[in-house]
Design a protein around this nucleic acid. Structure first.
Lengths: 141, 141
DNA sequence: GAACCATACATGCACGCGCATTGGATGTCA
DNA sequence: TGACATCCAATGCGCGTGCATGTATGGTTC
């Protein structure tokens, strides 16, 4: 039963590689050109926007965001700095633990996020759906 | 029938993200620490080593390699420079088209590649096999 | 309270990447 | 032959990332 692994793992990996690169390249390009957002930046907004539906209004702690992303602590810190400079997010100290920071969507941030969401979804559908899975060139540009 | 796409695309994407990041992080770390090879560098060796079985003895043109990898032309050029500095590969001019470069595995390069191959395969099996698909922490280090 | 380690975030640094440009080698057409 | 478009590879540049470290706060133990 391990025979399957021994043979197909390579093919599985290159398929994963193909899908990942094509999708993330186009995500990056589309989000950047249409909404001036990097992919990491959008993903932070995505987490902030998602929690909003529940109880907190677009708030999240840095650590919680980090745990949900494939991004190092330092990279997240800088990504948030960029978002803050762009006025899409604000850092707010946590009352009970002054080491921690809350992150909050600004109105402008929510607006930008809502505008970018359809773009994001469209790219995912294009690349992850069987009907759209044909060999669209990679080329990353 | 498009309903499926509309709902599951996000989950599919985050699964792809998870597999890609976990696998490539561990590949990078293992190849670097055990064989002093970056992932891009190994992938170049992989292409050079693969063609060897056929007719050419570990040769390939830069352009052909580029076409098989998800790497820009400039990144490939520098990756090859690193491999060359490490003595694992040599650049050789092409007789018929002096714009093109051939790449050749050196004996030392082939040795390093053969040594690294099991490491590469082991990581792939660990992450891409159902029996090994349990939630191994990401953490990238 | 003092000493100690753990945690949260920011920052210095080196590195690999993509984009744009450059320079050299063909190929084409008149 | 000369002018021009095309192609291959190298390089300058800016950017985002991870690692290692620094700084401040929190928690625990005495």
């Amino acid at each position: 039963m391990e025979a399957e692994s021994e043979v197909d793992v390579c093919a599985k990996w290159s398929e994963t590689l193909r899908v990942y690169h094509n999708t993330s390249c186009e995500l990056e390009n589309e989000l950047q050109s249409r909404h001036e957002l990097g992919l990491s930046e959008f993903e932070v907004l995505l987490i902030l926007g998602r929690t909003c539906g529940d109880q907190a209004e677009g708030k999240a702690k840095m650590k919680d965001i980090e745990a949900e992303m494939y991004l190092s602590q330092s990279a997240l810190s800088r990504t948030v700095t960029r978002l803050e400079k762009a006025g899409l997010v604000t850092r707010a100290a946590c009352d009970f633990d002054r080491r921690a920071n809350f992150l909050m969507l600004t109105p402008s941030g929510r607006e930008r996020f809502e505008a970018a969401k359809p773009t994001h979804r469209a790219v995912l559908v294009k690349h992850l759906t069987d009907t759209g899975a044909s060999e669209r060139a990679a080329s990353c540009s």
